[in-house]
Design a protein around this nucleic acid. Structure first.
Lengths: 143, 143
DNA sequence: TGCAAACCCTGTAGCTACTATAAGGTCAAG
DNA sequence: CTTGACCTTATAGTAGCTACAGGGTTTGCA
């Protein structure tokens, strides 16, 4: 199949497929006489593997490693696979924690301006300005 | 003060300060005879304002807008300020939700390989492979 | 046969918010 | 007078694409 059909079947844009090839995540496929890429079933599976990992937020470098484990002797222990997943879990977990703190801070800032004001009276701008002059701010000090 | 001292006082690297100037977030300061940037108190406050907004995860484009409200007539209503904060809250909120789903999926994937295995037996790799061939996967179908 | 639409190709630049480097100028202390 | 710490600009790199520009190919239709 051509790149466009692979794209349609996987829901991944052609340009992204070419990008994965450049990045060494997808093997370069055979070419037609006019230079068009010709993909077979294994390419589709490899791409689906990549997209599935991406949907789990894995970085491309990790996916490259994961994909590499297929080429290794099957008797090798899989602890490095587990380590990659564990890393990803802890990355995601700490992002969640950081964002939750952020949300609280933003809510506190937002509460400074609950009714319509002018710019001069806006509690939000005032709070941001106060923070800029070194004073305590609702968003960061209330924690 | 020179850029290095501004950097030290704000905890922001000199290169980042120059970057903010290029991006139009900080006004270009006066220069010494040898071309060194000379900052005054207002620059410090403006930079602190920017950094405070950044610590709330606001994109630079929004901070540019927020900073612009200082130059506008103080009698203007502040609803656009509120809108920016609300946008940021909803961005952060949906990021949290997406990451929480992700974490669940990753935990489910991780549970596929709880004891030491070989690559051939690794439930994680197997699950990822199954997904690539179109089968149901523990991480995405269990939701 | 001619032409247009829908494909495909490569190469390059853009996005966010920095960070890092190279290659050089300036300034104060010893 | 030299050393080291500062400063300057310009450029390239980071992640993971996305969006061109400028061309070639293929297919279908009149």
């Amino acid at each position: 199949m051509q790149i466009g059909e692979l794209a349609k079947r996987t829901g991944c844009e052609s340009e992204t497929i070419r990008y994965y090839e450049r990045e060494g995540l997808l093997p370069a496929p055979a070419r037609s006489s006019s230079g068009y890429r010709r993909y077979e079933q294994p390419h589709l599976e490899q791409l689906a593997f990549i997209l599935h990992c991406r949907s789990l937020g894995m970085p491309l470098a990790d996916i490259r490693l994961l994909a590499g484990f297929h080429q290794q002797p099957a008797a090798e222990p899989c602890d490095r696979v587990n380590a990659l997943i564990d890393q990803q879990i802890s990355r995601v977990h700490s992002q969640i924690e950081a964002l939750q703190k952020l949300e609280i801070q933003l809510q506190q800032l937002r509460a400074r301006c609950d009714s319509p004001h002018t710019l001069a009276d806006c509690g939000i701008l005032k709070t941001l300005d106060d923070a800029a002059t070194g004073e305590a701010c609702a968003c960061h000090d209330a924690s």
